[in-house]
Design a protein around this nucleic acid. Sequence first.
RNA 1: GCGCGGAUGGCGGAAUCGGUAGACGCGCGGGACUUAGGAUCCCGUGGGGCGACCCGUCCGAGUUCGAGUCUCGGUCCGCGCACCA
Length: 760
Amino acid sequence: MMFPYPTAEGLHVVNVYAFTGTDIHVRYRRLLGDTVFEPMGFDAFGIHTENFALKNGEHPARMTPRNVAHFREQLRRLGGLFDWDHEVDTTDPAYYRWTQWIFLRLFDAGLAEQREGPVNWCPSCLTVLADEQVIDGRCERCDSVVEQRVLKQWFLRITRYAQELLDALDHLDWSERTVTAQRNWIGRSEGANIRFDLERCARREVTVFTTRPDTLYGATFLVIGADHPQLEDFVPRDRLGEVNAWRNRLQPPGEEPDFSVGMDLGSHAVHPLTGERIPVWVAPYVLGGYGTGAIMAVPAHDERDWHFARAHGLPIVEVISGGDVMESPYTGAGEMLNSQGFDGLASAEGKLRVVAALEEKRRGEASVQYKLRDWLISRQRYWGPPIPIIHCPNDGPVPVPEEDLPVLLPEVEDFRPTGTGVSPLATVEEWVNVTCPVCGGPARRETDVSDTFLDSGWYFLRYPSTDFDDVAWDAERTETWLPVDMYIGGNEHAVRHLLYARFVMRALHDMGLVPAPEPFTRFRAHGMIVMSGAKMSKSRGNVINPDEYIEGYGADTFRIFMMSLGPYTEGGDFRDEAIVGVPRFLNRVWRATQLATSDDVADEARERRRHRFIKRVDEDIAELRYNTAISSLMEFARDLDHEASAGDARRIDADTLLRCLAPFAPHITEELWERTGHEDSVHARGGWPQYDADLARPQRVTIAVTVNGKRRAEFETDAGTPAAELERVTLELPRIAELLGGRVPLNVVSVVDRIVNVVV
RNA sequence: GCGCGGAUGGCGGAAUCGGUAGACGCGCGGGACUUAGGAUCCCGUGGGGCGACCCGUCCGAGUUCGAGUCUCGGUCCGCGCACCA
């Protein structure tokens, strides 16, 4: 399972839910005879802990071990089968030494680079945020409005893997919605790069990216992104001052796009096919960081361009039929028009022909773009692993030599963010000032720490090898345990954590350091737990403290209750009134199994019932349908209980019940296993009861009889009775004869073991 | 706006392939045991009708002998991405 982030508040219900579902699966696999490795660890670095520490004036280095200990204790009480000898803690130097080592491997491979760029800056957390930590222009953690700043940052070049990461999704056994989320995030789009000559500015030409080359003849102006790093190159010299002043006055991007904001640069572009001169504009609705940072605007066939053109009185030229472009943009496909020799072509065909024409004139070519951006890992904060780089005035950024790892996080008392865009580490002079490993001259350490997603990007590789201190992972152990055969976690990590982990694994694989390109062959996203339909949150005051339930009802009851809320992969509604049914059920199990003393193992009806029961529970657990497995367990326990009070409950049924219940309720089943005279453990590897598929199949079935689709009668018969026989029996039923009243049915449809429908 | 899910009794949810809708649990009603029961156990429980029966899976069409399930159109809810050209 995904390892938790140990907060001071303790284990969250979502953690309990994720963990319980995983543990049941692990216990089941172990009972089946598999050798299962279920490790646990703590993702303990990060801004959440640091912010909490800042608020309470306590040092994160002192707070974290306490949080971890608390989490560990809570997890123990839940009855997890964790291998605590392989625990991982990302804040342990013995761990982050290897996080730094991985960074250096990426650096050596050219996958880590430092570059300047506009970044998201949270004025409250006083740090840079990754794009995905910005929600609606606000900081994901503190809700402050995010500002833009230009800083030198470390990036991991995940974009180089965009296509590979996308392609490999086809072969992963993952929850479909997670795969979809990753596909959308990578955001591949196919189109063309088209070059326009420029006049009256420093640049001689500009390339735009479009997915609609078929609309090229409708391009009536160009737009450069307001945040384009080389915007000045597009501006006529005499207008530079004016444009810069305009740009500096720009409001940060709001929630709703504002198409009234934009400026005519005064330069011109030449249409590559018509030679027509069209104006060049600048506007914030175009993103400087996507594609080429510039677009050809086709107002007739693009929503945004249409609104922009309307707002600024720019011409709208229809080139695809199918709409009324003076009224609203038409963005669908259609037939080309006003497009010289291309008139009459369908969009799909037109795209290819226009690109071919551009290629011939060397004014463009087919192109693919991705939404995925490089992974910004620099954090100007304290609570993270220092990025292991030394900046030398002569040799530039130099990796810290491997034998000097880990670069320990210095124990400073004042870990508050400086707010100047520099990490608090920069104030620790004796730590920062070092000699260059290459030339021996004076140099300074990199003072940024890395993103927590780098910590969690490889922890699964560390688990099997926690007892090795000379390598990050042992080749043999890694070969044995990786890739992870079943990974369970929340879908909130569908893109960030899971995509970064895939990238890290793939990069390491290309370096020949790990045996497989993908970290998780199977992934299942568990559902969300809501409270009376509402998402749980502190502000709503509906956050559940699992401790209270475990204390009041016990771990077994709480586990079963959580798993019975709904399908595991869908989540459920946490209404705790229903929890009282679980102790009733466990009581029944307690009573019935101890009274089951009959040694009868031959009773055919009950053997069939037993095999049918095992089959259902078995298949349900395998598919993570814990809720329906639990209802089967309850049904079986009820039958057994009734037999127990009649004095003829069978020992074999009690044993079967306890084994099948063991993954859900590990404590009570172990106790009962002992009380019912067993020497070994109920959880013993390979103890899962086998079912016989023939016996699991019912031998008698009830056939429903419908007349014109309305149910009128039923009868019991042997399973597998042929359709013709079912029809014969049906027509002899008094009730059916009565309804027919002498008429001959038009048709009779008989389905073996199911139904007979008489049509009159 | 785009993408992905979902909508079934008073409630959470079952129904694997198009074949008896409502498994299991909560709640509720009745009963047993009991000095007592807010404990435990048993029985009942979609709605309507005295009844044979009728009506029922968000709404509207369709395919089919038969639709909760498939197709088309719509409503509402949740989640994710959101100016990605």
